[in-house]
Simulated scan of single mutants.
Amino acid sequence: MNERNTPNDSGILEEELVAYLDGELPDAERARIEKRLASDAACQRKLAQLQKAWDLLDMLSKAEPDAEFARSTVEMVAIQQEKEVEQLQVNAHRTKWLMFAGGGVAIAASLVAGFMLASYQLNAPERQLLQDLPVIQRVDELRYAESVDFLERLRREGLFAGEGEDAI
Rank of each mutant, 00 (worst) to 15 (best):
G162S: 13
L122T: 05
P134I: 06
A167S: 14
R71V: 02
D166G: 12
L111S: 00
V74E: 15
I79W: 11
E165Y: 07
Q89E: 09
E86K: 13
I79F: 14
N91Y: 09
G102Q: 00
K83D: 09
E146Y: 02
N91T: 06
T73G: 13
S110T: 06
F69N: 02
E86A: 15
D166W: 14
G158E: 01
V85I: 15
P134D: 00
H93W: 09
K96N: 05
R155E: 10
L159G: 09
R143W: 11
P134W: 02
A78L: 08
V74T: 12
E152K: 14
R156H: 02
A63N: 07
Q80D: 14
L130M: 03
T95Y: 07
G164L: 04
R156Y: 05
V112C: 05
L142Y: 00
S147H: 03
D132Y: 09
N123K: 07
L159D: 10
A70R: 02
E126R: 11
A113D: 02
Q80A: 12
E64G: 03
L159Q: 14
R155S: 14
S72G: 04
V135L: 08
G158W: 01
A124K: 15
A118H: 02
G103K: 08
D149E: 11
L130I: 12
V139M: 08
E163G: 08
D149S: 10
M116N: 11
G162F: 08
G158H: 01
S147P: 12
L88Q: 15
G114W: 02
D132R: 03
R138A: 13
I79V: 08
S147K: 03
F69K: 00
S119Y: 03
L130S: 08
V105P: 00
E152C: 00
P65H: 03
Q81K: 08
